[in-house]
Design a binder for these strands. Structure first.
Length: 482
RNA sequence: GCCGCAUUCGUCUAGAGGCCUAGGACACCGCCCUCUCAAGGCGGAGACCACCGGUUCGAAUCCGGUAUGCGGUACCA
């Protein structure tokens, strides 16, 4: 896998990494991570950190490459950052030049732009016109005297390139349709199509699994690698992840940074399961898999050929499944970052089972548990008095019911102020006064949590404690009679 | 424009000539359960397998063409 640190880890890159990982693990191969940081204008070390950290977070590990952002490269082919391999590229570019497979190009951006416009006007394919291929020594000398920067262009052989894609099967391209492309920029910086081929050879890469957007680039890579006398790896192109309108997934239309999902409390296990099934399926009706189980089952040849729309509803569903599968202790631990520090570990452990079935994302816990740390006054200010009144009842009926509830609860002293005890007493009270339990509980819920939707009432009251519970009901009573 | 890839319920997919009057999951709708919300259970609706033609006794599955979508076509990756 060879991400470019020009942005945070993208959903699509994450899935490509996952497929690479699953493929390598499944066949017992070596998984290499290489950082493609040749785009100095856009790349930054912070993005590299984001990519590596989030790959680790997903549970994806690699055998060679930088294991930690900014850390040491591990593996027999180090370094694994392209910015540190410049001598290699320079040497290989020189070889290309010597063998006549490449030539110097003195064209300026303006000249290139003019040619392109001309071609567009004549409805010709926009490609390099080969001017610098036919330069005289005098031309070269005068360009040099002008102080022009010189780029290196690969001379693309006019031939048909055929390869057997791991996912798509036989694919064929006519390279005579390609223009000669630049391999080293005027400022000496080697370009993607070139370095990727040089590094694949240097790092003994046998299988290249990448996004479908590279399918059309592959004939360039093959031409280049043949000119350099390299052995040809197998290529596999996985389909793109799409926006709901079926265009290539972009941050304009969808949240694409893995970090963003991580922050909202999607579990890495759910993310991996979800991503794996975006374009692949084990062919059975099972759908919950750990990353290890996926590696066992994953066949690169079974990857679907068409693009897949990112279906957030399904991710949400899967995340819920994974959250519910957590033990209370595990959930409490994962909930820590989303809840106020004043809630101690013991409270979290007691809170976990109340929230477990209600969480789509861990971050949802913040709102669901807010009533625990809000002040009594804050909670009291959250609702209008009529919110206390159940449907079909009046405020005049609700006030006495709530005061019965208050008296009932007040009768329980602290060590016994626990969920089951409270529930049975309240149910009995409701019954005794001719109220349906649900209606009777409504004003209590609103009084105690400030909301009509809350975690289970009696567990909530237990966590809140006797004093605060009663204070809040008292407040509600005052609101009702006002 | 040119080149390439793709096309099964709204979405992710199963399907590799008869097992398909096309299966599952998410989402949606209804019912049940129920202290709210969820979760769970049961059920429903939803795909003329893009279209046209061919091969075959028989095609979602094989072959052509068309359409549509996407990708590539940079001194970005």
């Amino acid at each position: 896998m060879a991400p470019s640190p020009t942005g945070p880890l993208h959903i699509g890159t994450a899935r490509t990494s996952l497929y690479n990982y699953l493929f390598a693990r499944h066949v017992g191969g070596t998984y290499v991570l290489r950082v493609e940081d040749t785009d100095v204008a856009r790349g930054t070390p912070e993005w590299e950190r984001d990519i590596i950290d989030n790959l680790h977070w997903l549970g994806i590990s690699w055998d060679e490459g930088p294991q930690v952002a900014g850390g040491e490269d591990i593996g027999p082919h180090a370094p694994y950052r392209q910015s540190q391999r410049m001598e290699l590229y320079a040497g290989e570019a020189a070889r290309l030049l010597e063998s006549g497979h490449a030539y110097h190009c003195w064209c300026t951006h303006e000249e290139l732009e003019a040619v392109r416009r001309e071609q567009e006007r004549n409805h010709e394919p926009p490609r390099y016109n080969g001017r610098c291929l036919r330069l005289t020594d005098a031309d070269r000398a005068s360009f040099a005297a002008e102080g022009r920067k010189v780029a290196i262009r690969f001379r693309v052989p006019a031939e048909t390139i055929r390869f057997d894609d791991l996912i798509r099967g036989e694919v064929e391209f006519d390279n005579s349709l390609l223009g000669d492309f630049v391999v080293v920029r005027g400022d000496g910086m080697p370009l993607y199509h070139f370095v990727v081929v040089v590094d694949d050879q240097a790092m003994a890469i046998t299988h290249v699994v990448r996004g479908e957007d590279h399918l059309s680039n592959t004939p360039k890579h093959i031409a280049l690698l043949r000119a350099l006398g390299y052995r040809e790896p197998r290529f596999g192109h996985i389909p793109l992840i799409l926006n709901p309108d079926r265009s290539k997934m972009s941050k304009r239309k969808e949240q694409t940074a893995i970090t963003a999902y991580r922050e909202q409390g999607y579990l890495p296990e759910a993310m991996v399961n979800f991503l794996a099934f975006l374009g692949w399926s084990p062919g059975t009706e099972e759908e919950i898999f750990s990353i290890g189980e996926l590696a066992e089952r994953f066949e690169i040849g079974d990857v679907h050929k068409a693009g897949a729309v990112f279906d957030k509803d399904r991710l949400d569903y899967l995340n819920g499944v994974y959250i519910r599968a957590l033990t209370d202790a595990q959930l409490a631990l994962r909930l820590r970052p989303y809840l106020p520090a004043i809630l101690d570990d013991r409270s979290l452990l007691r809170l976990a089972p109340l929230l477990k079935e209600r969480l789509v994302r861990l971050a949802d816990a913040t709102e669901l548990a807010a009533f625990l740390t809000e002040s009594d006054a804050q909670v009291g200010a959250m609702y209008e008095a009529d919110l206390l009144v159940p449907k079909g009842r009046s405020a005049a009926e609700t006030a006495p019911a709530l005061s019965i509830a208050r008296d009932t609860l007040a009768g329980v002293t602290e060590p016994d102020f626990a969920s089951e005890e409270l529930e049975s007493l309240c149910r009995a009270a409701a019954d005794a006064h001719g109220w349906k339990a649900g209606d009777f509980f409504r004003p209590i819920r609103v009084a105690v949590t400030g909301r009509t939707v809350s975690p289970p009432l009696f567990g909530s009251m237990e966590l809140l404690g006797r004093e605060r519970t009663l204070a809040r009901i008292e407040l509600a009573l005052a609101r009702l009679s006002a």
